[in-house]
Structure formats: structure tokens, C-alpha cells
Design a protein around this nucleic acid. Structure first.
Lengths: 330, 330
DNA sequence: ATAATTTACGCAATCGTTTGTGTAAATTAT
DNA sequence: ATAATTTACACAAACGATTGCGTAAATTAT
């Protein structure tokens, strides 16, 4: 392009990347001209030649959920700082869409993939393809243990233990749990943390105090609470596997004329902005979504750049915090 | 690639796109083989040759805001259905980052751009570049009137009129307004809608009832409310230019021992999920963020695909609704 | 059976960079 | 002043698909 005004085809390329074998005056001149003409190398051609797109593909359930958009925000921050583009695909929790997303991502020659699994997904061939093609793949949050690859998670079990122990510490003895879809490991782990903690504290496990939901919506929280408060001996504490559900629970308890936390204390999971707005403010687990995104991005970029075959699948566990608010402050 | 197993270089290409000049059996065979080998054409090479990337670049302030992520969700939905990828850049409301984003997007040869301006931005050269390079550009929400291009907005003025008239209709006579950053047209329009409505209803405009904020945060809502309730005659209604600010306002009013809506009615803007959780539930304007994203994406894709020079800059105005809830139900 | 037409595919240039290799000119060493 | 080096750039072949054009083979028309 700019070669016409001076004389040289490949010299331009080298000058623009400050290659040592190009004279300083030449280099300077090229840079100046490029700026004047507003010239930027065509990255498509460059990608083709270098066999690298600087694209990180992200497959997630829904971008308009707080957890997800925070994680993406973290991904985008470190990616863009490192010169990578982020392409986002939403699976809407549909297996078919996730497969389609993976196909598009494969065709688009992304350098690396970050994925958070859809609820429906229980076959992982469409993602295993990336490993086969030697494309770095990092899971976060809703990971898949069937593929040996890098993962970023939080200690869901430990977080659930913390939450349940907190309820016990404030005097709750009849603690219910509203569990998420058991197809996902994160929700199984949270349930397990709840159960183990009760056992360790010699509190009998009662099946009727565990409510299994499809997607932990506010409505499901509402319905579960209905059943709980109709019991002869209602629970005095409820640990919900996410915040939206906990919000539904609190609203229902209040609507029934009961008090949170005096009659029933409530703990959520996720520390969404809503947890600060509900009254009483919700005690919850901060899962550090933004940091998880950052960690996943750093991980995938590292793999891209050290194309070493150090394929030891590594798992990063991000810290989580129990944030105590009024919903458990008697 | 696949040519080795049969015999042909370009025939593969044509067969894969079902070109009529290729025999049916040949075409079928190629498809079958491609599936078996898991072969997908290298889209980078294809992009280079066709001079098209199927990428839509999106520049927005922050993805982890509900309005933005909803809009992106809308964009992504129609884009992916039409075979486009969405690349997202966050400006963090910084002019410098927005410029950098635009530069990267230009280098990446995106087919079209959708942008929502950063707060800081008041020079638009970095975006005008797209027009100069004949790359379709669509603004949404925070648009820029200095560049003649396509836009998707809501009728902010009309929405503010609706909100203010609603406050008047429930009996408010001393109505305050918490205004957003006046560098943005949307916030100027909302202020104007408020002012005009008062005038039309013969309610005197009082400067002290208008509070200008930097970014309409909850904290600024809190601070503004403090001043309002300290007045000899406090307002009996407050119209806030967004929901987070309105939440801060409501929380402050309650903390002061006053009632919403009986002492002061409150109207927000945006219909974020939090507006349903605050007590009392917040009356607000639903700005249909998802539909705005969809409209913007359809618009940019239409421009990409009809590369006609019908450059009449068109403006789509998305409907908005006043949603009446308890914060104005006396 | 020959000519005219259609069908089905191969050739080769092209998209705009990058990069290994080659080579004049400029510099340094002897 | 000649030889040995270094410096600074040009040549040309990739990267992998797309596509206008050309041409054998197959079909149809006369």
C-alpha cells in the first residue's frame, strides 16, 4: 500500500514492526507516512500469514446475567490489554446452540476458547474438538470434568460449608437448602457442602428440607418457601444456591408476615447487586466473577503464547467470601 | 485440504457452497468427506479473499451494566442468526480507551460498527473514520449528532414527559429532578422533558429542585436527596434519570423516616431488575434495551449487505413504556 | 454421424501480509 | 587501496480459500 509513495513492499512491513534490519530514517519515515495516511495493516491478511487471529472465543449461557457479564468484563480487560479480541457467543443454556457456537468458533480460527457450560449440555464432543485441534480451552464456573483441560472455579463446596456454618453459628438448627440443577457440578458441590456441614454439627439431614429446582429462579424460591412455611415446624434458616432465588425467598417470607432473619434467616450465593437492595440486605457468597474472568483469560493467553505441550490440565481456584448482612443478623 | 483424497482444488470450494456448476454426486461426496474429516474452510483465508469478515464490532461503556448487557444480548441474537460474529470493546467511559477500541476495530476489518458513546467523549474523529472508510456505523442510546449516521434511540424527551406528567397526575406539585451528565444528549433531553412538562402544567421551575450529577450513581442519589429533604419545603416527587440513582433516593428517604410515595414519590428510568426488588417497587421507564440492540444490529447488517450508497442517515426510535409501581401509588 | 450446446471440472491469479534468502552499497579492518 | 564485514533493503514464496476463464467430456440437436 504505502509502498507506492516510497519504494518497497516488505520493507514497510518490517519498518512498522521496527525490525532491526531497517534503517532508522526509513523506519521513521514509514511510521510518519502510515500515520498521515491513516494506514493500518490488514489484520486479516496478517492473520492468514501468521496463522494467528488474536481472537479469544467465549461461550457462555447468557450475557445479561450479572455473574456472566462480570466474568466477561474480566476476560475482556486482560484480553484487550494483551492485544486480543473477545468474541462472545451465548448458548442460552441450549446444547444445540452451544454446539453451533463451537462450530462457528472453530471456523473462525480463534486462538483460544473460554467456556462456561450450558445447563443442558451433557455431551462434550463439540468442545473436545478444540483439544484435538490443539486450541487452548479453559472452562470457568460451570466446568466439565470429562475433558482434561484447564479450569477456573471457586470452591463451591467450601463456600457452602461457610454459608451453612454461618447459619448454625447464629443459632439456626433447622436449615433448609434450595438446590440448583444437579446436572451441574457447582450445584452438587453446594448441596454437598450443606449436607456435610449439618452432619459434622450433628444436625439431622431431612430430605424435606432440601428443595431441588430447575434454574433457581425467584419464582422457584417463592414456591419452595411456600412449602417450607407450611410445614408444622418450618426451617429457621435457608441457604439458597443463588441470589435471585434468595430474593424470591425473602420476599415470600415477608409476604407471609414472617421476619427475616428472626423467623427465618436467609443466605444467598453470588453477591449480585440486588443482594444489597433487598430488605433485609442479603448475606451471600461473593464468588469474584470478575477475577474468575481475569484468571481464565490469563490462563488461555498463557497457553496460546507458550505453545509448549505442557498440557498438564491446571485448575485455578478463586477465593470466595461470605458477606454477612442483615438477612442473618439477629 | 480435502483435494488430496479426490482430485481437485477449487472444486472443493464450489462444492461446499453448492455451486451449480458442480455435479450432484461430486458435491455430495465432498460434503460427506468434509463431515468425516471435520473440515471447515479456513475463514481467515476466505475473509481475505472475499474482503469480508462477518464481524460486527461493538463499542460500549461497560458490559456489566444491565442496560448494556441487555442491548448486547439483542445485538448478539440477531447478529449470530445472520451469521455474524460480535466483537465487544469496553470503553469504561474513557475517551482514550474508546479511541484505542476504534483503532483495533479498524485494523480488524470489521464489516460494521455499533457504538454507544463514552461519557468523556466529545471529539468524534475516531468514529468518523469508519464513515470515511465506508464501514457502516450505527449509534445507539448515547448517540452523536455530529456525525451523520444511523442511530437507534428512544424518545428520551417524551419519556421524561410521561414520567413527569405521571407525578403530576398523582398530585405532586413540587417535583425535583436528578439529572445525568449534561454532556450526553439523552440526559439533556430528559431534563428538558421534565422542564417542559412543568411549564405546560403551570408549575414554576425552581433551580434548586434540579440536581446535576456526574454519573447518576446511588451515592449521588443519596446526596441529592439529603439536600432535598433538608429544604424548608421538600419536594413531593422526584424524577431520577436512571434507576440506580432512584434506588439511592428511595433508600435515603426511608432512612430519613419519610415514606415513599406518601411523602415523596419517586420515578426512575431504565427498568433494571433492581427496580422490582426495592421497596416500594420503583415506577420507571422501560427503555427496551434488548430491542434497541436488535434494531441496531438489523440496521448495521442491512447496511453491510446492501452496500448501496443510500447513505440517508436513518434514526429508529424505539418505544418506551412507563411502568407504574408502588413508588408512585398513593 | 457431425455439429452445437451444455455440463463438470481444472488452471491460475488474487486477497495483503510476513519472512527466508539474496545482494548491492556502505562501513570497517588490514 | 583491497578485502572482509556489516547494513539496509528487495525478491519471491508462502498462508488457504475464491473466482473468472478455459476446456475436455457428455449430452442434445440436426
Amino acid at each position: 500500500m504505502a509502498e507506492r509513495l516510497n519504494v518497497s513492499p516488505s520493507t514497510i512491513s518490517r519498518a512498522l514492526q521496527n525490525h532491526p534490519s531497517i534503517g532508522k530514517k526509513m523506519t521513521a519515515e514509514v511510521h510518519k507516512l502510515a500515520k498521515k495516511l491513516g494506514y493500518y495493516p490488514n489484520s486479516v491478511a496478517s492473520n492468514l500469514r501468521r496463522n494467528k487471529t488474536n481472537v479469544i472465543g467465549v461461550i457462555i449461557p447468557r450475557i445479561d446475567r450479572y455473574y456472566q457479564s462480570s466474568a466477561i468484563s474480566g476476560i475482556e480487560e486482560v484480553a484487550s490489554k494483551a492485544g486480543y479480541y473477545v468474541i462472545i457467543f451465548q448458548s442460552n443454556n441450549s446444547y444445540e446452540r452451544e454446539k453451533e457456537n463451537a462450530r462457528m468458533l472453530l471456523a473462525s480460527q480463534a486462538d483460544g476458547i473460554i467456556a462456561c457450560l450450558a445447563l443442558e449440555t451433557n455431551n462434550y464432543d463439540h468442545l473436545a474438538v478444540f483439544k484435538e485441534n490443539n486450541i487452548p480451552l479453559v472452562f470457568f464456573d460451570r466446568v466439565c470434568y470429562e475433558i482434561e483441560t484447564h479450569k477456573v472455579i471457586i470452591d463451591d463446596f467450601g463456600a457452602a460449608v461457610k454459608a451453612t456454618e454461618h447459619l448454625i453459628s447464629i443459632g439456626c438448627r433447622r436449615i433448609a437448602h434450595i438446590a440448583g440443577n444437579q446436572k451441574m457440578a457447582i450445584f452438587r458441590d453446594r448441596l454437598r457442602g450443606y449436607q456435610e456441614t449439618l452432619k459434622k454439627n450433628n444436625i439431622p439431614l431431612e430430605e424435606e428440607l432440601i428443595c431441588f429446582t430447575e434454574d433457581l429462579s425467584s419464582e422457584e424460591g417463592d414456591a419452595a418457601t411456600q412449602k417450607f412455611i407450611e410445614m408444622q415446624v418450618p426451617p429457621d434458616g435457608i441457604f439458597c444456591s443463588n441470589d435471585p432465588c434468595a430474593i424470591g425467598v425473602i420476599q415470600k417470607i415477608k409476604k407471609a408476615g414472617l421476619s427475616v432473619p428472626n423467623n427465618i434467616a436467609v443466605v444467598g450465593f453470588g453477591n449480585t447487586p440486588t443482594s444489597l437492595i433487598i430488605e433485609p440486605a442479603l448475606t451471600t457468597i461473593d464468588d469474584h466473577a470478575f477475577e474468575m474472568g481475569q484468571a481464565a483469560a490469563r490462563m488461555v493467553i498463557r497457553q496460546i503464547e507458550e505453545s509448549q505441550e505442557n498440557v498438564d490440565s491446571e485448575t485455578i481456584i478463586i477465593q470466595n467470601d461470605l458477606i454477612i448482612r442483615d438477612s442473618t443478623l439477629k
